[in-house]
Design a binder for these strands. Structure first.
Lengths: 130, 130
DNA sequence: TATTGTTATACTCTATAACTATA
DNA sequence: TATAGTTATAGAGTATAACAATA
């Protein structure tokens, strides 16, 4: 329950309010992992291929990704993040970190409790990265 | 990032696949906090009033909540969870707990690490309950 | 013939605006 | 006149089905 509520609160903070959650998730993936095809992105985000086409169209219109036909297999479209796209991701993460920090400050945790949270954060990253 | 990914993974697990996330969130609120008016629910879920009317319609059709006019102020509609609704929430939480437990088992944490996670879970509940 | 991506179309969830009924 | 809720309508995001290009 805490996870769902925290996600909901943090989701409000983003760098560009023209960008949807779906777009942001793809951009974050591309930033970490380089270029990907439409199908791969669709599979990773667990959406149908036409939905991903739609998401990429939106990102492309805003200049956050570029499409390039794969020359080895001309059916494929390689999607790559632009510098502007990477900046948007960094800025969004910065704002969410800031919001979370504000939320944590309100509770007035002890230093020991903050240490527990930091450790747990690292542990949870290991879980979700599988 | 870990929060968003975990929420996404856990969201898949639910007791009734006819139930949306919005419906489930309302049901969980009603189960913990008793009956509420449409406006109060809308405010708590941070959606507009017509959206909440829509969400409650869906829950009512499935028999998970009942509407009752407030006799003190006949403009108000009090929404209460039914027994079937409460059961759905419990079952969904059970399935999500199970999924999370499976995910945690895959990582093979030490007992000390699991203790850190348990403590952090309690701490995060304090943050999001504000 | 199978696969990759796109287009066409429909459904759900959300919002704003306008309405009804109560206060 | 203000408030609680609903209805009407429109805009995202998603899905399935059908199609074009390529393998």
């Amino acid at each position: 329950m805490a996870t769902f509520r925290l996600a909901r609160r943090l989701r409000c903070a983003r760098a560009a309010d023209t960008m949807s959650d779906a777009q942001l998730a793809v951009l974050a993936d591309l930033r970490m992992n380089g270029r990907r095809t439409i199908s791969t992105l669709a599979e990773r985000e667990r959406v149908a291929a036409p939905s991903m086409t739609n998401t990429i169209n939106g990102l492309e219109e805003q200049g956050f990704v570029v499409r390039a036909t794969d020359e080895d297999d001309r059916r494929r479209v390689q999607v790559a993040i632009t510098e502007a796209g990477a900046e948007i991701v960094v800025e969004t993460i910065r704002r969410r970190d800031e919001l979370l920090a504000d939320m944590l400050r309100e509770v007035d945790y002890t230093e020991a409790e903050l240490t527990t949270l930091r450790e747990a954060s690292a542990l949870m990253r290991r879980v979700v990265e599988r």
